[in-house]
């Protein structure tokens, strides 16, 4: 097996291990129902993380994810209260996500500044705009939302795939296609592997960077739409620090934060690991939510150290 697949294999192994540990300890854990719930409850994080995967594969980072989710949520809610159709609002918000991401990408490449700081400005800006839209929690009341929530596909056993999970899986498939079967996808890996070489190999770095962040913006906005529909409301503080969970999901999914190595499919498992941990802690009942943060931190640590040593064995040029 190529070393390339090692991080992904580790991710899946950890996922299965946690799932089995849960199954060994709790009666109703090892069921498709739990699986379906985890998929639905974490769908927005995973969707956002899919977008972040592209950004991180290219060697960048996007901190504006959480704020984007919050902003999309309040816009959905407020426009709903003004009588807009949720589908139309969602489309508008997706376009906004693309444009906002593209703008961030353009500034990053044009000004040649670390993505970290540019998307930090994006984080502030979008969160501030949340509060400009509304200061309160606003419900989404349109009938369509109830319809959407009722869509489901049965799974073997008693589980169901709910609408959020379906949207997430579809967007995952699209992302896998983009990452592994398009010219753009190869360019993303190339830029993350060695930006200067990629440029000399004919990759249009600026255009690709803009597209990467636009894609990230799209997925963040989609995550915001799914989150708003899932909770049937918009709240200006929604999604705070969610960028951290998304980044954690990407890393746990086996993507190197240094860029260039990783797989979109891994992000699904990375997000599921985070979901499993919180589900386990809820099942336990006596454990505090502090353990969610701490165990994610421990896993993150283990994966980052593992990646660190993998990178040195890859003999990557930029691996310092």
């Amino acid at each position: 097996m190529s070393k390339k697949y090692l991080p992904l294999a580790a991710t899946i192994a950890v996922f299965l291990a946690i799932f089995l540990i849960g199954g060994a300890n709790y009666n109703n854990f090892l069921t498709t129902r739990v699986l379906g719930n985890i998929l639905a409850d974490n769908s927005f994080i995973i969707i956002a993380a899919i977008g972040a995967t592209f950004v991180i594969l290219s060697g960048g980072i996007d901190l504006s994810i959480g704020s984007m989710i919050g902003f999309v949520g309040v816009c959905m809610a407020v426009l709903d209260s003004m009588g807009w159709n949720p589908v139309a609002t969602a489309l508008v918000m997706l376009v906004f996500g693309i444009l906002f991401g593209a703008l961030q990408g353009y500034i990053i490449d044009f000004c040649n500044i670390q993505p970290f700081i540019v998307t930090l400005a994006g984080l502030f800006l979008l969160r501030g705009m949340c509060f400009m839209v509304t200061l309160d929690s606003v419900p989404i009341r349109h009938d369509w939302v109830a319809d959407y929530a009722s869509w489901k596909i049965g799974l073997p056993g008693k589980g169901v795939l709910r609408s959020s999970a379906i949207v997430m899986l579809v967007s995952l498939v699209v992302a896998i296609y983009i990452a592994h079967f398009t010219r753009f996808g190869s360019a993303v890996y190339a830029i993350g592997g060695d930006r200067e070489s990629a440029r000399l190999m004919g990759v249009n770095v600026r255009r690709t960077t803009v597209k990467i962040y636009a894609l990230g913006g799209f997925y963040s906005a989609l995550a915001g739409v799914v989150y708003a529909l899932y909770t049937s409301s918009g709240y200006p503080l929604a999604g705070s620090t969610l960028e951290l969970s998304a980044i954690a999901a990407v890393v746990l999914g086996g993507t190197l934060l240094t860029g260039g190595v990783g797989m979109v499919a891994g992000t699904l498992f990375g997000g599921m690991i985070l979901g499993l941990i919180s589900t386990l802690i809820i099942f336990n009942g006596s454990l505090n939510s502090a353990w969610i943060l701490i165990s994610s931190g421990v896993l993150l640590f283990a994966f980052i150290v593992m990646h660190r040593f993998l990178v040195s064995s890859f003999d990557l040029k930029g691996a310092k």
Binding site: N288, A290, W291, L293, G297, L300, I304
Partner: peptide
Amino acid sequence: IQPIIATLILMVSGRGVGML
């Protein structure tokens, strides 16, 4: 380990340690 990545670990889990 790259600084952004390395300090991310404590960033994610530190508040959990505080809660603990």
